[in-house]
């Protein structure tokens, strides 16, 4: 028996919007720790890792570890039928081939049940080693989204270079080049607007903008985004979900031949 009740249903809607363009089908894993997912995009260039900790739910019942295969587009469609302020409950009986999404409006006078078929998905869990990253940038999530969107109108790839002074995003295309530098900020009064750089070593890596633009669908989940890079690892783009966990995207760099 599985029963997860989330007071902020809008959060689950945002989570699905943040994953559905990157991954078609995925297994959600439910354990006493929380509700999680790890999945790669079809070309195995990017990986998304989601964790919604059990403590973040108003009620969390998961009698045994279960893995539920879902089509993320279909799940997003069903969740779009929930109001942003609705309470969302996920329910599944042991051995059932479907999951029920229950939506309750804030005044509790409208209750909706949506039942979705589960799928059998061959999951490939990858071991993600704990790593010390050479450079970590924390910046406003909306600013990062804006930069990725703007640069993708000029080129297909972005060179991200981190130094002690700031982070530089560069691209080039048929029409010309673009270069955006975000300098580290020193203000303390508005931490959500700060650009913070923790650098052990300067890093310069090239990534496909198409994927970064897909990751920025998670922007409504967090005010800040953390970008971690090492020269020999996929980059990690993390959006922390307050009180619940995180959504992390891993992206393999472009490699010089």
């Amino acid at each position: 028996m599985l029963e997860l009740r989330l007071l902020q249903g809008g959060l689950l809607k945002k989570v699905l919007e943040a994953m559905k363009d990157l991954v078609n089908d995925a297994n959600f894993d439910c354990s006493p720790t929380g509700f999680s997912l790890q999945a790669m995009d079809s070309s195995h260039v990017a990986l998304v890792s989601l964790l919604l900790r059990s403590e973040g739910f108003e009620h969390y019942r998961c009698d045994r570890n279960v893995s539920m295969g879902m089509n993320l587009n279909n799940m997003a469609k069903m969740l779009r039928c929930a109001g942003n302020d609705d309470i969302v409950t996920l329910k599944a009986d042991d051995g059932s081939d479907c999951i029920t999404f229950m939506f309750e409006n804030p005044s509790q006078d409208k209750i909706a049940d949506f039942e979705m078929k589960l799928m059998d998905i061959d999951s490939e869990h990858l071991g993600i080693p704990d790593a010390e990253y050479q450079s970590i940038v924390r910046m406003p999530a909306a600013e990062f989204a804006r930069i990725c969107r703007d640069l993708s109108t000029i080129g297909d790839t972005v060179l991200i270079s981190v130094s002690k002074e700031g982070v530089q995003f560069s691209t080039r295309g048929d029409m010309g080049t673009a270069n955006i530098v975000c300098r580290r900020t020193t203000t303390v009064d508005k931490p959500e607007e700060d650009v913070i750089i923790e650098m052990e070593e300067p890093v310069s890596l090239t990534f496909a903008l198409r994927y970064l633009n897909s990751f920025t669908k998670a922007t409504p989940l967090a005010t800040q985004v953390t970008i971690s890079m090492s020269s020999d690892l996929p980059m990690v783009i993390e959006y922390r979900i307050e009180g619940m966990g995180y959504i992390r995207y891993y992206l393999a760099p472009k490699i010089d031949e």
Binding site: M40, H44, V45, L47, L126, Y250, A252, K254, I255, E257
Partner: peptide, 14 residues
Amino acid sequence: GPKQGNILSFFKKI
């Protein structure tokens, strides 16, 4: 141009 890397060459299946 540079070649797109693959996640599976960095993270191993478990």
